[in-house]
Computed example of a mutant assay.
Amino acid sequence: MKRFGFLSFGHYSLKPDKTGKYGAQEALNQAVELGQIADELGVNGAYFRVHHFAPQYSSPIPLLSAIAATTNTIEVGTGVIDMRYENPLGLAEEVAALDLLSDQRIAIGVSRGSPETALRGWEAFGYGGPELAREDPKGAALAAEKFDTFLAALRGDGMATAAPFEQQYPQMFRSGTQLPVLPHSPGADRRIWWGAATHASAELAARKGVNLMSSTLVFETNGSSLGDVQAEQIARYRREWEKAGHDWEPRVSVSRPIFPIVDGSDAQIFGPAGSGESHDSIGVLDDQRGIFGRTLVDTPDKIVEALKNDKAVMAADTLMLTIPNQAGVAVNARILENFAQHVAPELGWEPATRG
């Protein structure tokens, strides 16, 4: 583990009090503030979940832009954007612009997405329809097609044909020329991650030439721990990457809920040391049985020991700490500070630096 960051789900209340407490505006402002504090601590990344039709973050690019504009070294990203809801060319334009404005400090995770509160909510966004719903009820094929288009656009491939010269305004291109979406940020595609909950999805990410964001849950429930299953997923991803012959080194991330207990005030907030879950959780998501990671609430030495024994954490280069964003900035800053001072150095952490 060389890097660590925080992963926020962005929950807020639909009925904030008269001051706006716990509402959407406060959640967004607190995310920016926490990003700034994390940047000062040398934390490597600020990552955000994306969900639609729910009181959580839903339009990440403005939020990431606000954090990038007010920080110096921290990378900003998502975990993950649901491609079923996206216009792939529009997203490619926004991601390229953010990459340029942030001096290439992005880590944009995308995937098919997880279940939503809406029934095929992407149809309300203008994608799909009754016929597609019968053929592709979960939108997996729709997301895959959009992802391919998004990657091609981000890599600068032609996406439209230039009009006859005399019809163009401004007159810039030879008639029939294939036009890329603009702006173009060279290398931005190497800062794209695919969120994978299965071995097959991870192998596909390798073939497509993007980084791997191993999901907060995995579906290969064979009795092994989450860390062991993810470690196998990471190994398969790297083998497939080598077979594909890509000419650069990819990144891999995993996420864990971790609360270091350094003193009595931490214990009052998070519970006494050792009060976390002793085993991974088993649950059903999207009609599939999956493994969720356990929550670590313990002293730094015990957390270091647990993470060193977590094969996936040690195989990945980036660890995302899932945080309770509704707990407020001070509480979440304390989690990051405790982890940066007492845990991360024992795991090989390299604080963020410019360039």
Rank of each mutant, 00 (worst) to 15 (best):
Gly245Asp: 09
Val210Met: 05
Thr78Leu: 05
Ser201Leu: 01
Phe292Ile: 04
Thr117Met: 11
Gly139Glu: 06
Val331Gly: 02
Ala244Tyr: 03
Ala54Lys: 07
Phe259Ser: 03
Lys208Pro: 00
Pro324Phe: 04
Tyr169Asn: 15
Ile192Leu: 13
Leu142Phe: 11
Thr318Arg: 08
His11Pro: 00
Ser225Cys: 04
Pro324Val: 03
Gly158Ser: 14
Ala205Lys: 04
Gly227Met: 09
Ser214Asp: 08
Arg49Val: 04
Glu93Pro: 02
Leu151His: 05
Gly276Lys: 03
Phe9Leu: 12
Leu226Val: 05
Lys308Pro: 09
Ile67Ser: 00
Glu220Thr: 06
Ala27Gln: 09
Leu336Met: 15
Leu41Phe: 12
His52Pro: 00
Ala306Gln: 11
Phe292Val: 04
Lys21Asp: 10
Leu204Pro: 01
Asn72Lys: 15
Leu307Phe: 07
Asp280Ile: 00
Glu249Arg: 15
Asp263Trp: 08
Tyr57Thr: 02
Thr161Cys: 11
Thr177Trp: 12
Arg334Gly: 07
Tyr237His: 05
Tyr22Leu: 05
Pro351Leu: 08
Lys2Met: 05
Lys2Asp: 07
Ile74Trp: 01
Leu321Pro: 08
Pro88Met: 11
Gln178His: 13
Arg112Trp: 05
Glu350Arg: 11
Pro257Lys: 13
Gly42Ser: 07
Thr70His: 00
Leu285Cys: 07
Ser58Thr: 04
Phe6Thr: 03
Ile269Gln: 07
Ala152Thr: 02
Glu26Pro: 06
Ser114Glu: 06
Thr117Asp: 14
Ile106Gly: 02
Ile192Gly: 03
Gln288Met: 13
Ile291Met: 11
Lys138Tyr: 08
Lys243Ile: 01
Gly176Phe: 13
Ala107Phe: 03
Pro180His: 08
Thr78Ala: 03
Ile108Met: 05
Ala205Gln: 08
Ser175Asn: 10
His246Met: 04
Pro55Thr: 08
Asn332Tyr: 08
His184Gly: 01
Asp247Val: 04
Ala141Thr: 07
Asp286Met: 13
Gly355Ala: 11
Tyr57Ser: 01
Pro186Ile: 12
Gly209Gln: 09
Ser265Val: 03
Ser175Met: 08
Asp148Ile: 05
Arg239Ser: 14
Glu166Pro: 02
Ala267Ser: 14
Ser13Arg: 06
Glu277Arg: 10
Ser255Pro: 02
Val80Ile: 12
Ser59Gly: 01
Ala96Arg: 05
Leu217Trp: 11
Leu100Met: 15
Gln171His: 14
Pro164Leu: 12
Ser185Arg: 13
Pro88Glu: 07
Ala141Glu: 15
Arg84Gly: 01
Val181Met: 05
Gln171Glu: 06
Ala344Thr: 06
Gly290Met: 12
Leu336Asn: 07
Ile81Ala: 06
Thr198Lys: 13
Ala96Ser: 15
Trp349Cys: 06
Lys21Pro: 00
Asn87Gly: 02
Val297Glu: 08
Phe125Leu: 13
Val284Trp: 08
Phe219Gln: 10
